[in-house]
Amino acid sequence: MSGGPVLITGAAGGVGTVLRGGLPEKGWALRSLDVVELQETRPGEEHRVADAADLAAMVDAATGASAVVQLAGHRGEATWPVIAHSHIETTRTALEAARRAGVQRVVLASSNHATGFTPRPAGGLLREADAPHRPDTYYGVAKVTMEALGSLYVDRYGMDVVCLRIGSAFPEPTTVRQLATWLSPGDTVRLVDAALRAPSPGYAVVWGISANTRAWWDLSAARALGYDPQDDAEPYAEALIEAYGEPDPDDPVHARVGGEYTLPDLDADEVEARMGEEGR
């Protein structure tokens, strides 16, 4: 991989902020891009203000980069136009800009919601190969499309694309479900660092969680890239279970990969009405 900076799209978001704080400590120079000005930049960090769906701006930003980390997108479920622009179009643009700029490596922030309606296995851990695309929302559909676009650019153009099916990337777990799905800030940095450094991964789809005692998902594929998670949600378990109770295995929140995203309150009509009210 060349010695240029890593281009991070969606750099002002939660995961982007974590990576901007941690990747330089791993030796990576950064070029950050978002539609808003960053409140502060790190020493040596380049910053671009642009829409990640703007191909010309993205080609310019990707030129001279060693890799692209695509994080741009509306957080969580939204109406189809919002999802299509902020996730699908930005992903296609990131991949195409990387191709045109001669950037070999792209890391895509996918999600467990690409396979949200997949049931948890009765025993053992769920491998990526056993979790086919079963999106739980438009957001999940966008992540399915993201993975498909990544596959296309690997097969047609010989690029290296790593799709990270991120679980719950928060400072700490806040629900009982997140005792299984939590990805700590430190492990977020370790996971992306591994995806950037893995030699010739081709096309890879891996779960993105910490080394949680109560994990649902098998981290073997991520570990094969060089990911060595250091954190575990278990220290939070006693307080969360005391507050919310033990998980009910028949509750869809705990029985399906996508958890709350599989529930009726994220039906398209409900989301449309809610976002309409928020816009008033």
Results as ranks from 00 to 15, higher is better:
G13T: 09
N112H: 08
G140A: 08
E45P: 05
R75V: 14
H85R: 12
G3F: 07
G186P: 04
D51A: 10
T17A: 02
N212V: 02
A72T: 15
P247E: 01
R197M: 10
A221P: 06
R156V: 08
L33G: 11
V18N: 05
V68C: 15
D228N: 09
L240R: 00
Y227N: 01
E89V: 03
D51I: 07
R31Q: 15
W80T: 12
A11M: 11
L7K: 09
R105N: 12
G276N: 06
H74T: 05
P121H: 12
A109P: 09
G186S: 07
K26R: 12
T63W: 01
S66G: 05
T175Y: 01
W80C: 10
G102N: 03
R274F: 01
A255W: 09
D187G: 15
V69M: 02
H47D: 10
G124V: 07
G245S: 12
M58G: 14
D248M: 14
A129F: 00
E147L: 00
R214M: 05
R48M: 11
G73Y: 10
A67F: 06
P81M: 11
L23R: 07
G27Y: 12
D193K: 03
D160V: 14
E242A: 00
L164I: 12
V35H: 13
D34M: 14
D130Y: 01
Y203L: 09
R75N: 14
D218V: 00
A53Y: 04
L191D: 08
G102M: 04
R223T: 08
A195S: 08
M58L: 13
E40Y: 05
T188N: 10
L95A: 13
Q70V: 09
P199E: 05
E77L: 10
M1Y: 11
D269A: 06
P264F: 12
D250I: 05
A268H: 14
D265F: 14
G226W: 00
G4M: 01
V141H: 04
E40K: 06
A268C: 13
V69L: 04
E238R: 00
E272A: 05
T79A: 11
I209L: 12
A53T: 00
A255D: 04
P229H: 08
P132C: 04
R100P: 12
A243T: 09
A101G: 03
H85Y: 13
T145R: 11
Y244L: 00
L108Q: 10
P119D: 08
S66H: 03
G150Y: 02
A53P: 05
R20V: 14
V176A: 08
E128W: 11
L183D: 00
